[in-house]
Design a protein around this nucleic acid. Sequence first.
DNA 1: TTTATCTTTGCGAATGATTATCATTTTCGT
DNA 2: ACGAAAATGATAATCATTCGCAAAGATAAA
Lengths: 141, 141
Amino acid sequence: MKLNQKDELLIVSSLRDAGVRVTKQRVALLYILDNAKDHPDAIELYKRASEVEPTISLATVYRTLSVLIEAKVVHRHSFEGGGARFEKAKRLHHDHIVDLNTGEVIEFNSEIIEKIQFEIAAEMGYELIHHKLELYCRKIN
Amino acid sequence: MKLNQKDELLIVSSLRDAGVRVTKQRVALLYILDNAKDHPDAIELYKRASEVEPTISLATVYRTLSVLIEAKVVHRHSFEGGGARFEKAKRLHHDHIVDLNTGEVIEFNSEIIEKIQFEIAAEMGYELIHHKLELYCRKIN
DNA sequence: TTTATCTTTGCGAATGATTATCATTTTCGT
DNA sequence: ACGAAAATGATAATCATTCGCAAAGATAAA
Ligand SMILES: [Mn+2]
Ligand SMILES: [Mn+2]
Ligand SMILES: [Zn+2]
Ligand SMILES: [Zn+2]
């Protein structure tokens, strides 16, 4: 798998915007993250990125993830059971429902909850920097 | 450190209620959990329980935690950075604020948020089993 | 209380995820 | 193209947690 000129340029400028050096490994990984519709773990990202850039190593996957998380381009999740999972940050914030039967992760957003969180933090003398809301559920029917 | 007769009896009956066998290691660990005012990790629990019952091992701490979590007597948290942390389940549910500067964990509860979570899950065709809400904050001033 | 059965324990090895080391390669401003 | 600084792959190391097993302990029946 090779990524086209247009995709490549977009990814490269995201990396530049994030203020990090551009390497083919980083381009490959961010491309994979950008196109992932799920929340893969490091090994899965390594597999997928290897298709695009076979020279990438698992160590570099982890290193690049740390770099991109630091730059707020990627989010790390630690859902119950299993290791860390990652996703590219999207324009709009969202939280997650985890299907306890299938492991599937669904996204949602509640402006009301976001607002109340903010208020609770303030009431207790805190500034809310970020948060994590995970709903562990089972499908009805 | 030795625990008194009264404490011991209470702990023993909690274990019986939880439907698990009573061993001195389990009594010691549950006693420590019951009296902890913080959210310690496994090694810290091992240290504290060792004071009460020096024969306990780290493996047994982990095993007992699993048993107690299965019995819903203990909750496991995985706050950002660092390993799992534990606490004895309390009568009333609560969520957590994590102070990003000090690492301190503060508890809070919002009936409104709880209710909205329930509604969101239902709207999406899910039954909410449990959830995790973590607010990462910095103290104001 | 003695016994029989099944469970739990301590120890230490094994595992799985993530990070560190280091020699080599690559990036990027000049 | 040059050189300083940063990033990389391979592999070793670390950290948290789990496993395997023989010995010790808990429970319930006799
Ligand atoms: Mn998501
Ligand atoms: Mn708590
Ligand atoms: Zn949110
Ligand atoms: Zn809650």
